[in-house]
Design a protein around this nucleic acid. Structure first.
Lengths: 197, 197
DNA sequence: AAACTCGGTGACTGAATACTCACTCAGAAG
DNA sequence: CTTCTGAGTGAGTATTCAGTCACCGAGTTT
């Protein structure tokens, strides 16, 4: 009975799977629909039967990827207790998924409003965790009395900069791994109250 | 006498002038050679008699713009004595030339190696000034004992982030003007040794 | 088994866009 | 005045895309 429907869903899933791979390798803007269709072993036109535009395909895949990434990162961050440990966890996670974050750092300004909003919304959840821990640090007097939101922005900006210009900083391998200790050290010095050491 | 040569130079200058305007309005990557030709009131093909590729035209215009910008900023910075004053001057200057810096913040990862190197080289001169002042501040004990190069990177990253995502932060007007005080405040708190106030 | 349905096909379209080239004609040269 | 030169022209080429459509044929219904 459902041979047709089954095949249809299988095709759609195949597109999703291959699109994810192609998008993560070439970036959402650079990847072409023809390339994705070829990878999924379907005709170019078939792709548009399942996703009426490239934009919608990007939204679906990006949502899926962000969802997974956010969930994992939430788990890591919620088990971190102090600020430095949390920043360290966050950087570990970025390193693990560096390819996608490099793409986002570069392409974000060129996405449609909808896409940008989705990404920034996801990020704001992560920011919330770090914000909270900084606020606590300030309250108990361990961290300097600064505006936590701004401190978080500065941290994210720095990471973003290394991701965006990755090829300038490293020839190969992870740029986050390379600069993790430097980033952690400067923020430790920036944020911690005690400079007596 | 040389009416022909004169006209040729005039045309070349016209291309340069209009290209600068179009590039600064649409960005170097978005602007098209056809559009520039139309603005300069010449045939599309004529542009390629004067500049053998779009890349070369970009390099010439960008060099010209960066040259001017760097010179002005050098003047401003060399008259600044302390760190905060220098950062403030730098932000003032960015605000004044914000359009071009927004373009560079977004497009930098997509430029050819040559273009990127030119831009980063110019920036490194500016970084040098700030680096020097931070180093001095540390030596005399006014600033915390951090790695100055990393501090400079964090500062530039932050500014770059606001520029890159300008439309997220402000609907219209200057994003630097809007966040100048916040940026200066956080870096004051980050860098200054005395947190007693 | 005939008629119908609909997922899939891939050649095609049209819009951009960088770049080329055969040709023109104003102005220089003799 | 005649011939030559070369800056300028703009139609044309080549390429790259996202997106469309007339058609096919396997599977479903009658």
């Amino acid at each position: 009975m459902n041979k047709r429907l089954e095949q249809k869903q299988k095709t759609r899933e195949q597109i999703r799977e291959k699109a994810r791979i192609v998008f993560l390798r070439k970036g959402f803007l650079q990847a072409t629909t023809a390339e994705i269709a070829e990878a999924a072993d379907i005709a170019h036109g078939t792709l548009f039967l399942h996703f009426s535009s490239k934009e919608l395909l990007i939204i679906e895949i990006l949502d899926q990827v962000l969802e997974k990434v956010s969930r994992q990162i939430e788990i890591q961050l919620s088990s971190s207790l102090d600020c430095e440990q949390m920043l360290s966890s966050y950087l570990d996670f970025l390193e693990q998924e560096e390819d996608i974050f490099v793409i986002l750092a570069r392409e974000l300004p060129y996405y449609s409003d909808e896409l940008r909003r989705k990404i920034i919304f996801r990020q704001s959840i992560i920011r919330g965790h770090i914000h909270r821990v900084i606020q606590e640090g300030i309250t108990v007097g361990k961290l300097i009395d600064c505006h936590p939101a701004m401190a978080v922005t500065v941290f994210f900006s720095t990471v973003d900069y290394f991701l965006k210009l990755k090829p300038v900083f490293v020839e190969e391998g992870s740029v986050i791994a390379r600069f993790k200790q430097d980033i952690l050290e400067i923020f430790r010095k920036f944020l911690q109250k005690d400079h007596s050491s």
